[in-house]
Design a protein around this nucleic acid. Structure first.
Lengths: 334, 334
DNA sequence: GTGAAAGCGCTAACAA
DNA sequence: TTGTTAGCGCTTTCAC
């Protein structure tokens, strides 16, 4: 990489002259400015990012910590973050906590050494179950703002972007009930995290309000979802509705129903938290609760960048943005 | 963030003494070292990463440019890269080219200003179709090594990690033929990229060798895959085998077959390029060609980090690593 | 209009 | 054993 020093030497001027010329300072004469710029272009000069960061004490980089990159929702949020960040001249450093508290702490500490200006993150499962939040508080107290999305810690004072999980399943369940369904089961493989629990509660409330009986199928990490859902259908011949809290279970519930000669949506109606691309994996296509992952990511980035721009904004003055889900009807419901 | 300067002041020693003490230099006396370390721990001192980068002229950061984060294979590779990089003390900055040549160029240039020590990337679709490679060459000539994976440019001299795409479909097709299948169709929604073409050729070779007739279903960007596959089955009652080049088509081919009262695998046998989690989306589960995405990512990171360690390794001395696929049999084949 | 010098935080050669 | 100094690449204040 060519430096100011080298340009200065070649042009027989001082380093500061070159710097000013390139920054269009009007201290510098017209022709010098021209000469400098020409040579800079010739050599494809680019200001060294690291030197700039050191000088200006900001990196224009955001640290993103996500629990699981293979989760379609989370990678979509990442996409949204990246795009919004880029728009504002920010880069993103991605760390994957793999649902581990230790890794999450490490990533936070590792990047809090001047590598990034702030963080966007969704909390690891282990962190949620152990209810650890000190590492977040420490980071914020160090002057590095955090924006949390989806899985958030309500006891940490910071900006947040969340989904209306409770409302979503509440309404989706009502929808099935309105179709006349009486035996609606809730399937979830995310029972251990906050949003999973919220979704369950929304379902429960809806069911209980109508005087129906809730029925849950909780999938554990190493369960074979196909086997479990098969057993469910085998034991319960009267199931006529499914609410799936994760993206796979709804698809499987549809495809498996046929093994029991049950037609979707005639005999069983299915709604799942999923994306358009995954809804394609079932025949008929899954009616989905869309979470607008990209929008969530974009909003999170926006909140963080806003805060970085106004450095003396009070920590107390944080906001929680709710991104509402949309029920996108397809052929798995009436 | 606390700095060496502040520690030095508080301890009434010079900055370099503090620096040396923290780096365990044996120039420094036992007790001074102790005093320094204690205070450093107390204040939770961490060396400023940016200053280190500037000083040592390396960032310990890798730029990763991927065409599409929503592609499950690519995000899995990203996972592999991140893990391997972390193991060696590297962070990753992620850029998403969104299959656009322009964005790919931009990302490359943006990070080539000292932000990263090298790149790992998979080439955007547009870049492949326009056959542009100068931006890669420029970057490498600037002294920033590149490792390409999956979609690579063979005319660029750099380390590469690829899948044996041709061989994979060649063998998978042979497998179906060995089952006695005569009417095997090849379905692909990635016809425009290099790996898609290789997969098609492998299929073709296998089919032609056996004196059978190749049959292709090429899905375009805005096609509804379910509709297309439905039409395919409707027009071709004798199809008894499917090779899917992408991760969705195989799953859909299985689930759609039932609409035509055709049993999988009895009547139709299906193999797809997919992952374990997606293979779950069909009943019966899809037999998949596994690409070992994480391993590909890890290998790419390893190659890059190796090269960064031996800075005077010749550009001519690059290697191409082939990560072989594995056929994982499930219930969609005999 | 141009340049010298200081300083961001750190390391390391050299001096004391 | 400890300190001084220079320098990584850049911006910016202040002198000329």
């Amino acid at each position: 990489m060519v430096t100011l020093k080298q340009l200065a030497k070649e042009l027989n001027v001082s380093i500061s002259t070159v710097s000013k010329a390139l920054n269009n300072s009007d201290e510098i004469g017209e022709d010098t400015r021209k000469r400098v710029k020409e040579l800079a272009r010739l050599y494809n000069y680019k200001p060294n990012k690291v030197a700039l960061s050191l000088k200006q004490n900001k990196t224009k980089t955001i640290g993103v910590i996500i629990p699981d990159i293979l989760n379609h929702f989370l990678s979509k949020v990442l996409f949204g973050i990246e795009r919004e960040a880029n728009k504002h001249g920010y880069n993103i450093i991605t760390c994957i906590s793999n649902e581990s508290l230790e890794k999450e702490k490490e990533s936070l500490e590792l990047l809090a050494n001047g590598s990034v200006d702030g963080f966007i993150l969704s909390i690891a499962e282990e962190t949620q179950s152990k209810n650890e939040i000190n590492h977040f508080k420490d980071t914020i107290n160090q002057g590095l703002p955090i924006v949390m999305f989806d899985r958030v810690a309500h006891d940490v004072k910071c900006d947040k972007v969340i989904v209306d999980d409770f409302e979503s399943t509440y309404r989706a369940t009502k929808n099935l009930i309105a179709e006349g369904r009486k035996n609606i089961v809730f399937i979830s493989n995310i029972d251990t995290i906050s949003v999973g629990k919220l979704r369950e509660r929304g379902y429960n409330k809806s069911i209980l309000e109508e005087g129906l009986t809730p029925k849950l199928l909780i999938l554990k990490k190493n369960d074979d979802p196909q086997q479990k859902i098969k057993q469910l259908y085998k034991k319960n011949k009267t199931i006529d509705g499914v609410i799936a809290a994760d993206s796979a279970s709804g698809v499987i519930a549809i495809n498996m129903a046929r093994n029991f000669k049950r037609k979707v949506p005639k005999d069983i109606s299915v709604i799942g938290f999923s994306s358009k691309s995954v809804s394609n994996h079932s025949v008929p296509k899954l009616t989905v609760i869309r979470q607008h992952a990209k929008k969530i990511g974009a909003k999170a980035a926006e909140l963080l960048i806003d805060r970085l721009k106004t450095p003396h904004k009070s920590i107390e003055d944080y906001s929680t943005k709710i991104v509402k889900t949309t029920l996108v009807k397809s052929k798995s419901t009436l």
